[in-house]
Simulated assay, not measured.
Amino acid sequence: MDETAEPLPLGGLLRALRRRADLSQRQLAERAGVPQATLARIESGRAADPHFRTVERLVRAAGGRLVIGAPDAHGPDGLPDGPVAVPGVPHDGLRDEAGRRYPAHLDAWEVHDPKDWPGAWWAQWWKLPPERFPRPVPAATYELSRRHRDQRRWADRIRREVAVRRATEGGLPGTCWRFVAELPDGRLLGELRAHERDPRLLYGDLIDAGEREVVLDGVLVAGACRRLGIGRRLVEELTAEMGRAGIRVAHAVADFEGVELLNACGYRIEGRGHYAMRLDRSWLGPALSGPVPLQP
Rank of each mutant, 00 (worst) to 15 (best):
M1K: 11
E3N: 12
A5E: 00
E6P: 09
E6Y: 05
P7Y: 02
P9V: 11
L10N: 05
L10K: 09
G12W: 01
G12H: 08
L14Q: 01
R18C: 06
R19Q: 15
L23I: 03
E30R: 15
A32N: 07
G33P: 06
V34G: 01
P35D: 12
A37I: 05
A37P: 10
T38M: 10
L39Y: 05
L39K: 02
R41A: 14
D49S: 14
D49G: 09
P50G: 09
V59D: 02
I68K: 13
I68D: 04
A70E: 12
G75F: 05
P83T: 05
V84A: 14
V84Q: 14
A85E: 04
D96I: 00
G99V: 00
P103G: 05
A108L: 12
H112Q: 11
P114Q: 10
P114F: 03
K115F: 02
D116L: 08
P118V: 03
A120C: 06
W121H: 14
Q124C: 10
Q124R: 15
Q124P: 01
K127P: 02
P129H: 00
E131R: 13
P134Q: 08
V137C: 03
A140W: 00
E143S: 06
L144P: 13
S145R: 07
D150Q: 14
R152D: 12
R152K: 08
D156S: 15
R157Q: 10
I158K: 04
V164A: 00
R166I: 08
E169C: 04
G170Q: 11
P173H: 11
G174T: 04
T175V: 11
F179N: 05
A181R: 03
L183D: 12
R187K: 12
L189P: 11
G190M: 06
G190H: 03
E191W: 03
A194Q: 07
D198W: 06
L202W: 06
L206K: 10
A209R: 08
L216I: 07
D217C: 12
V219N: 00
G223M: 09
C225F: 10
R226C: 08
R227E: 12
G231A: 09
R233A: 12
V235I: 07
T239M: 11
A250H: 08
A254L: 02
E260V: 09
N263P: 02
G266Q: 06
Y267K: 03
R268L: 15
I269M: 13
I269H: 11
I269T: 14
A276C: 10
R278H: 14
R278D: 11
L279G: 14
L284A: 10
S289H: 13
G290P: 05
P291H: 12
